[in-house]
């Protein structure tokens, strides 16, 4: 990079040169923390590579780019890069490729877009902002870190591909939309929040859910024995939900016209959760 290009910037493009031998911890590499830095300054920032700290320039080519606000664009297969956008509190991150574990964990504001797939624990304990994964997400997405009481607790999480197991485990607030299939234990121990899924779901869907809403826009799963139907008119809340989901298009575009069946459960855990089955 020529020194002439090494000016302060608030947006950077980081191109992965080679696969790291170990996991890279990208937590802390958020747009707002790098605003006003030069590309060479960014390249010197240390990150954890396994058990040692190395400058990010060891793995990435960094260049400034034009953008409206603080933004980072990562290019390449970042599937060994974890913690991207952890605690993000504003600005935008875009990953053109796959990304590793913990993407968007604990983010509070701002936007992350991953064009490829994400690893484990995507959006775990996410509290606000918007996270969109173009491909699949691994297990425990929108869930809690081990031992924590609450999973995702706000914001909007969109998965265009498939979701792994335990999606939304202990989720408490916010909206998650899954276009593809979901794995086993979807919405297990759900405290509250809304999950809309367009694909098929695995075993034990809604296991132990206490409150919250599951909307099945595609295949209609058979509710387990610990869920029971309620016969009343839910048009009002359904219209509010369906209109909100319609912006995501595709299988979610025309839900408002449906008259969903409603089941409540898990009766083994408070039973104030609901399944809405529109077809």
């Amino acid at each position: 990079m020529s020194p002439a290009n090494d000016r302060d910037a608030n947006a950077f493009r980081l191109r992965l040169r080679a696969q790291p031998a170990l996991r890279l911890d990208l937590a802390g590499f958020v747009p707002q923390a790098l605003g006003g830095e030069t590309p060479s300054g960014v390249a010197r920032r240390a990150l954890w590579h396994g058990n040692e700290q190395v400058p990010i320039g060891e793995f990435f080519d960094v260049e400034a780019m034009a953008a409206d606000g603080p933004e980072l664009v990562f290019e390449g297969d970042l599937s060994r890069c974890d913690g991207l956008g952890r605690g993000l509190d504003g600005g935008r991150i875009r990953v053109e490729g796959d990304v590793g574990d913990y993407v968007g964990s604990g983010m509070r504001a701002g936007e992350i877009v991953v064009t490829g797939s994400a690893g484990l624990l995507a959006a775990c304990e996410m509290a606000g902002g918007r996270l969109e994964v173009g491909g699949d997400v691994g297990d425990y997405a929108a869930s809690a870190l081990p031992g924590d009481m609450d999973g995702m607790r706000g914001g909007l999480f969109i998965v265009r591909g498939k979701a792994g197991a335990r999606f939304g485990d202990r989720m408490r607030r916010g909206t998650a939309v899954v276009f593809g299939d979901a794995g086993d234990f979807l919405a297990s121990r759900l405290v509250a929040g809304t999950i809309a899924v367009a694909g098929a779901v695995g075993a034990h869907c809604g296991y132990g859910m206490r409150r919250g809403t599951l909307i099945f826009a595609g295949p209609q799963p058979e509710p387990p024995p610990t869920f029971v139907p309620t016969g009343h008119d839910v048009q009002v809340i359904w219209t509010l939900l369906a209109r909100s989901l319609a912006v995501h298009g595709g299988p979610f575009a025309a839900l408002a016209a449906a008259r969903p069946r409603r089941f409540v459960g898990d009766l083994a855990a408070d039973g104030k959760g609901e399944w809405l089955l529109p077809a």
């Binding site: 607030r173 809304t194 009343h232 008119d233 839910v234 009002v236 809340i237 509010l240 939900l241 609901e274």
Partner: peptide, 24 residues
């Protein structure tokens, strides 16, 4: 205690079970 809430696009709605269904 049977009431439940739903946050949709940042707005919270309360859903209170009543005899004709639910009051939102």
């Amino acid at each position: 205690g049977w009431q439940i809430s739903k946050v949709i696009d940042g707005r919270r709605y309360w859903r209170v079970p009543v005899m004709d269904g639910e009051f939102v």
